[in-house]
Amino acid sequence: MRKLVFSCCIFFFFATSLGLAASAKPYQGKTLVIVTSHADDFSIFAGGSIATLISQGYTAYLVRVTDDEKDGLIDPPHVAAINDQQVQTAAKTLGIRAIYSLNFKNDELERVSETLIRDRILFYLRKLHADSIFTFDPYARYGEENPDHLTVARAAEDAARNAWNPQYAPLQLQNGVHPQVIQDGYYWTRGPIAVNKVFNTAQTEEIKLAALRQQPNMVRPAGLVDIIHHADQSTGAIYGYPTAEVCHHIWYHGKPANQLPALVVTPSNTVRSQASSDRSQGASR
């Protein structure tokens, strides 16, 4: 009897611990793909939120759309090279696992086919088995005056909505790349949007600031990091947190009623759990 009681206690102890661990990491096993126009957008506007989501279990990847050749004070080739180097460190500081660069020309995305940008983002959403995306809000208004931001946001949203449909970019569907259902998206912003999610970034603000300090070529002039920190504090004061970032959170196919595990769709019209065979390719991600 004592053995039984002891076993039950041990069982409950581990069950409770696992439960607590699960609630602390609600996104364990999920993948977040961050789509950024420029190498400093994600860290300035959502660095704290991204670090928070990573601490809650997400594995995060960064898709960087432009070459950032114009964001610096010297010639474009050197500016692009420096920014390329600095974003690697900044992303690593936030906990992002890898960066994929699409290398489109900085601040000239409106000359590029939006379908092409969409399809190249779509490839990474499928390849990385994304569950969620984080990008600019395509509907931001006053204050959001950079056309690159809006172009990338539109393309990323379009990709997220349609990555599940095998008729979109069908040639991508080979060598283990399958259609992928993107459940939800987080949209950061620098202008008014429909804010429906506030991240308390108290625990991750320092990580964000450290990441920003890794990008002095883009996050300039001196003192800008302090200005960004002050803005995060001001935002936090509104919502009762030491620091905060705001965003719009969206479910692309309706909120799953029972929070099903992420599923992938194959062209042969069968649905299977993402835990199945192609999940085992995780090592190659």
Binding site: W164, N165, P166, Q167, P179, V181, H253, G254, P256, A257, N258, L260, L263, V265, N269, T270, V271
Partner: peptide
């Protein structure tokens, strides 16, 4: 409708992947 059937959320509503 045949395409919608691929969406797991919709499929789960009918308890039928087809």
């Amino acid at each position: 409708l045949g395409l919608q059937a691929l969406l797991p959320q919709k499929a789960s509503l009918s308890r039928d992947t087809h």
